[in-house]
């Protein structure tokens, strides 16, 4: 499986994604420059974390003008798997591939720490290697990761099983205390209705090496591979 990791100017987790993916036998990862207008030859696309185009005006808004995003939209429309991590999630929301928006954290500060996530659905190409209700320990690092959607959209997400990850405690209980950024409904990651576009604020690529304290992020990439 060949994965394209898009490098926007200001991306800073692109190389980390390549490092993490390269550990999986059968998976290869390559950087895709934002000025490319095709993603031909790739089996999956990752929009990595960072501050694309400086994230001025609003996080993720500028990427919509990059040539590669046109190609990514076509790829997604054709059913190709697209994974957006952190800034990548913001880009997916801003470009209309996922509903909702990511706004400033509840306490207005950037937060970098490990979080616990409860896997809500395993019927997607990104979570099928996990078990339902499994708890993953994966870090977050963002200033604007509070997921917001209006009530109708939230209801829609729930009805169609699009909420894939929620912030929980280590036993899977949800509360405001386990919600690091004030996301509605403790949402940490959602997919589109077709289940081939997935955005999440936590960084699975940072939880793939035992030296870094957790390998729970592997299940996401393992799912993509299987």
């Amino acid at each position: 499986m060949k994965v394209g990791v898009v490098r926007f100017p200001g991306s800073n987790c692109d190389q980390d994604c390549v490092v993490a993916l390269s550990q999986f036998p059968g998976m290869s990862a390559e950087i895709l420059w934002h000025k490319e207008d095709t993603v031909a030859g790739f089996d999956a696309i990752i929009l990595p974390g960072g501050f694309s185009y400086g994230d001025y005006l609003r996080c993720g808004v500028s990427a919509r003008f990059s040539p590669v995003m046109g190609a990514v939209k076509d790829f997604a429309a054709a059913g190709g798997p697209v994974l957006g991590v952190c800034n990548g999630f913001q880009i997916l929301c801003e470009s209309g591939l996922l509903p909702g928006a990511l706004v400033r954290n509840r306490d207005l500060r950037f937060i970098c720490e490990h979080t616990h996530l409860r896997v809500e659905r395993t019927d997607t190409p990104f979570t099928r290697a996990a078990s339902s209700g499994q708890i993953l320990r994966i870090p977050i690092a963002h200033g604007e990761g509070c997921y917001f959607a209006d009530n109708d959209t939230l209801r829609d997400l729930r009805e169609h099983g699009q909420v894939l990850l929620r912030y929980s405690d280590e036993r899977g209980y949800l509360s405001q205390e386990t919600n690091p950024n004030g996301s509605r409904d403790n949402i940490a990651g959602i997919c589109n209705r077709e289940r081939n576009v997935f955005g999440l604020m936590p960084h699975p690529e940072r939880a793939c090496d035992p030296l870094l304290g957790s390998t729970d992020g592997r299940v996401i990439f393992q799912s993509l591979l299987s």
């Binding site: 800073n12 987790c13 190389q15 980390d16 490092v19 993490a20 974390g49 500060r109 950037f110 937060i111 970098c112 870090p139 690092a141 960084h203 690529e205 940072r206 090496d209 870094l212």
Partner: peptide, 8 residues
């Protein structure tokens, strides 16, 4: 408040 985890 610092991203101390980037670059793995």
């Amino acid at each position: 408040q610092y991203d101390h985890m980037v670059r793995l």
